[in-house]
Design a protein around this nucleic acid. Sequence first.
DNA 1: CATAGTGTACTAATAACTTAATACAGATTG
DNA 2: CAATCTGTATTAAGTTATTAGTACACTATG
Lengths: 125, 125
Amino acid sequence: MNVTFNKRDPIYLQVMHYFKRLIVSGELKPGEEMPSRRQLANQLKINPNTVQRAFSEMEEQQLLYTEPNKPSKITEDPNVLRQLKKEWLNQAISQFVSAIDPVDISLDDLLALIEEEISTRKKDK
Amino acid sequence: MNVTFNKRDPIYLQVMHYFKRLIVSGELKPGEEMPSRRQLANQLKINPNTVQRAFSEMEEQQLLYTEPNKPSKITEDPNVLRQLKKEWLNQAISQFVSAIDPVDISLDDLLALIEEEISTRKKDK
DNA sequence: CATAGTGTACTAATAACTTAATACAGATTG
DNA sequence: CAATCTGTATTAAGTTATTAGTACACTATG
């Protein structure tokens, strides 16, 4: 459980983002149990209600489901999962293209820089 | 002056981002005058101090310089400008690669999606 | 020389978020 | 069957960053 919170964004959003990422990557599998709200709050040294907020929003987005008095679980709905991955990717690309729009650089150079960054990261990990 | 503020991020940061983008794109040229703090605040319907905060931070970053009782001007230091562009690009790429890291997609498919997004935007504008 | 424009500085108010304190219903476990 | 674990809900308080209000010093201009 490697989470570091930045001070700028709301913690509940950062918690959501952390778990969404795990779902997108497949590290959290459909049907898998989430940690309990209190337990997670203890680990992260945050208030249980902050976890509750993150979880209940993820539940609204149908990423989690909760049976009464049981820990929440990752959705098993393939449509929801597919949609999540799709949106995650679209959002990343859209934001990226928008960010580099003002920069004067050729497409080839840009793609080369991306490849370079990716291979650098592979090496480092 | 086409600015729409989101509600999440501090306004002064959004103002900074807006002008940095203009500098990166070259729409604001070295030595060019910035609008006065009050005038800009009026246009954007925000408090002059919010503009002041944005401007003074940009001044700290040496993107602007201000002679007493004169409107601020864009820096004419080519090193600062080069550095800004470099960091802008690096930040975009780094953030993007980090975002798509959990996604299971081939490099070729990814680059194709980027090209597609770029050409879509060109078409639409 | 008064008016209106600069930038700047200080303090107060606001708003958003987080934390905290409790409570309740139900399940599980020893 | 008591203790402890789930999730859920409500309300209040605290904190912090952002925004707003106001005043000051200086300059240019008509």
